[in-house]
Design a protein around this nucleic acid. Structure first.
Lengths: 336, 336
DNA sequence: TTGTACGCGTTATCAT
DNA sequence: ATGATAACGCGTACAA
């Protein structure tokens, strides 16, 4: 096993103290930069620690301090692409090495969620971030001994702290963008109607169009699935029924890709004849598209960072319950 | 704060013992199902624990046991889609709640990696999994007080434990599949030549074609980038120069999507005139394609689970150093 | 300036 | 069957 200058596997403060010929108390003070320790002694201790490649046991410190410097991150679907940016943002905000993150994937199963929760509470995490797989609201974890922040998917309990992307604003901004490009015959092809995201975006879109005295092509949004396939079939139907269409707002980037494919097959030029726009700004889809797809970014990294900050505040005790909606951002590319 | 039947925020074993009117020792035995404790006493303790919603402090347990029940997961790129399935597989294998996973994203920065490493060692993780962002080999973390398993991107040190997908076999299987479909004029369009994955797959492909007495169309693989764009341009050039082409092996699913788009524009039917195949089996790309794209799955969840198992073995002391190559799997859909 | 002693929450040993 | 006590590794009042 490792034997790098020292001798024991996991050197403790006692080992360091012994080697430096001081008491553990003095060693502790020296290593933690406290006062009342002779400079020469300090260097001796530091040298001993270096020699043994001593790493203080954070768990023991935490046991004493009552704070572990760890947070739990419970996500509903790791494979889903929404949790990852949020997770990265959170990890980012916690600072490298300062705070450590326990990751748990409940896979949408509340039993599994409970198991993970117990494990995390047993490890005395200082706080919890719960990331939803959709923006649909979810049952609260209830009264826990540590603060909780719900990200992406909000808690149903208004006394919890929740953070969600402002999908109404996202829809509104997208619609405004198309209108500002002179489009007057705008259709909306989107995903599963059971998704709050779909409904919220539709609401934002129609509200802006109402203000502009415009009606959605066909009178209403076209709900389906979040797939390219649906984008293609819905668009084909749309072109046939409403050849006057000059703008299509798609519920996500995959639907938009499907729309673009069908438009290309039909020989409709984008963006000259029809402008197309997606949601989510999934780079691998937007930049692979012909032409490059305009989209609305959910700013998920920001959401993750904000979640981390809110959690800190909650830990400090300066909590502000309620659901906070974070702004989204239109990214203009070649399809609009 | 929470007040669910009990009174204190974080009840300790002492609180439980006090409420059950026994000593902490007895309480501990009762809760842990040890012998030599009266049934009636046990129920009294259990009831007290339930009342206080007592959760044993895993940190204190670990302090005593010398095992923390935690592992560190250091990934090079969270956003990359390769780490996620591996991470899920590992999380899966560790068992829900049994073992907890610290997640760290080093973002490809070795300084950051060192910081995370220190934090993890300080938290006395029982082991470490290092996930690479590519299959290119990476420098070893060196001699650590805990076992390490390198997943996806292997360590350069053969004494380390490394796990990688068998890309040579993947290429070979893909080529075999196309040959078995009667294709004789097969081209290979792939990504950045600096990627070991690209080279390995090419090697597997050419070796099979050699055995079949076939040469790659154009005599060699066409390296570029891992993008749809490259798939389109490379395919356009290919069709012009080699109209005899009846099969295209694409280095990943995005390149394959690009190839399909170009073929469709050119009016070449897939799979009648040309068969197309990708690598990675990224579902969102394969099932969105027209027709559905055949691909080679890297079995990353299996790789993640295996990494977790190997780590367990290493923790138990039954280590087997070296680089292990895990099999990939051809997924046949409509393009072949 | 340095050292002694206690406590954090838990488990195991050894008495009782 | 139950309880007192030591130990895990560390920080900190307090005494020297």
């Amino acid at each position: 096993m490792q034997e790098r200058g020292g001798r024991v596997k996991n050197p403790t403060l006692r080992d360091v103290a012994r080697l430096a010929d001081v008491s553990v108390a003095t060693a502790s003070k020296a290593l933690n930069g406290r006062n009342h320790v002779h400079p020469e002694t300090r260097t001796r201790v530091l040298e001993a620690a270096r020699l043994l490649s001593f790493t203080p046991n954070t768990l023991a410190q935490g046991l004493l301090a009552g704070q572990t410097g760890t947070v739990g991150l419970i996500t509903g679907d790791l494979d889903g692409r929404f949790s990852i940016p949020i997770l990265m943002g959170a990890e980012d905000a916690f600072g490298t090495g300062k705070m450590s993150v326990f990751l748990c994937d409940a896979r949408g199963d509340s039993i599994r969620e409970q198991y993970h929760l117990q494990a995390l509470l047993g490890r005395r995490v200082d706080g919890l971030i719960v990331v939803g797989s959709t923006t649909n609201s979810r049952p609260s974890l209830g009264d826990l001994p540590v603060p909780v922040v719900y990200a992406y998917g909000p808690s149903t309990d208004p006394n919890d702290i929740s953070l969600v992307p402002d999908n109404v604003q996202a829809g509104a901004d997208a619609a405004r963008h198309l209108v500002s490009r002179g489009r007057r015959h705008i259709a909306h092809i989107t995903g599963d109607v059971d998704y709050a995201a779909a409904q919220d975006r539709t609401r934002g879109i129609t509200s802006v169009l109402d203000d502009a005295g415009i009606e959605l092509v066909g009178g209403e949004a076209r709900y389906g699935t979040w797939s390219e396939e649906w984008g293609r079939t819905a668009t084909a139907r749309l072109l046939e029924e409403h050849p006057e269409t000059d703008g299509i707002l798609c519920g996500n980037d995959q639907i938009a890709r499907g729309a673009l494919d069908t438009l290309r097959d039909a020989g409709w030029d984008v963006p000259t004849r029809v402008a197309v726009m997606g949601f989510d700004n999934w780079e691998v889809f937007t930049s692979g598209a012909r032409p490059h797809l305009s989209s609305v970014d959910m700013n998920l990294e920001v959401l993750g960072r904000t979640a981390a900050r809110r959690l800190f505040e909650a830990i400090e005790g300066t909590a502000t319950p309620g659901t906070e909606e974070l702004p989204c951002r239109v990214v203009v590319r070649e399809t609009t």
